[in-house]
C-alpha cells in the first residue's frame, strides 16, 4: 500500500477534535469519497478520538491517503499512551462501557469503516487503525 499524503494531529482537548474532523473531511473530499462514506468515516473517527481523550487523556491521530489495490482510501491511526484495554474482546462488544456510557464507540466504529485493527497493551497504550475505501 502506498501512502500518498499524511497529517499527524495531536488530540488533547475538545477543540482539537473539531480541528481533526475538519481536516479528515478535507482528506475524504480530496479523494472524492461520497457523502455517506465521508459521514461514516468522520463519525467513526469521532468515536475513537473521543475515547482517546476520555480514557487516555490525549493522543495523536495520523491521517493518510492510501492507495489500495483498486481504489484510494483514507486511513487514520489513533495512538495513545493511556491505560490500555485489558480485554479487547469485551471492549468490542455492543454495550460494554467502563465509563457509564452507551458502549457503542468501538463496535460502532468497526461497523462504519472498511478495515479496523486494534492493538492494546495494559499500561502502555492503545493503537487503533481504521481505513475507509473511497467506495468501501
Amino acid at each position: 500500500m502506498i501512502v500518498l499524503s499524511s497529517d499527524n494531529i495531536r488530540i488533547a482537548k475538545e477543540l482539537d477534535m473539531v480541528l481533526f474532523r475538519n481536516r479528515l473531511k478535507e482528506y475524504a473530499v480530496k479523494i472524492g469519497m461520497g457523502l455517506v462514506n465521508q459521514t461514516k468515516l468522520i463519525t467513526a473517527a469521532s468515536e475513537l478520538s473521543r475515547n482517546m481523550l476520555r480514557y487516555a487523556g490525549e493522543g495523536t491521530a495520523l491521517i493518510e491517503i492510501v492507495n489500495g489495490q483498486r481504489q484510494n482510501g483514507v486511513r487514520v491511526t489513533f495512538s495513545d499512551k493511556g491505560p490500555g484495554i485489558s480485554n479487547i474482546e469485551q471492549a468490542m462488544k455492543d454495550g460494554f462501557s467502563t465509563g457509564k456510557s452507551l458502549g457503542l464507540g468501538l463496535p460502532g466504529a468497526k461497523r462504519l469503516v472498511s478495515e479496523f485493527d486494534i492493538k492494546s497493551t495494559v499500561g502502555k497504550g492503545t493503537t487503533i487503525t481504521i481505513t475507509k475505501w473511497k467506495n468501501g
Partner: peptide, 13 residues
C-alpha cells in the same frame, strides 16, 4: 439527512 440516518444505524444507536 440520509447519510446521518445510515450512520446512526451502523453505529447501533
Amino acid at each position: 439527512r440520509p447519510e446521518i440516518a445510515q450512520t446512526i444505524v451502523h453505529l447501533g444507536i
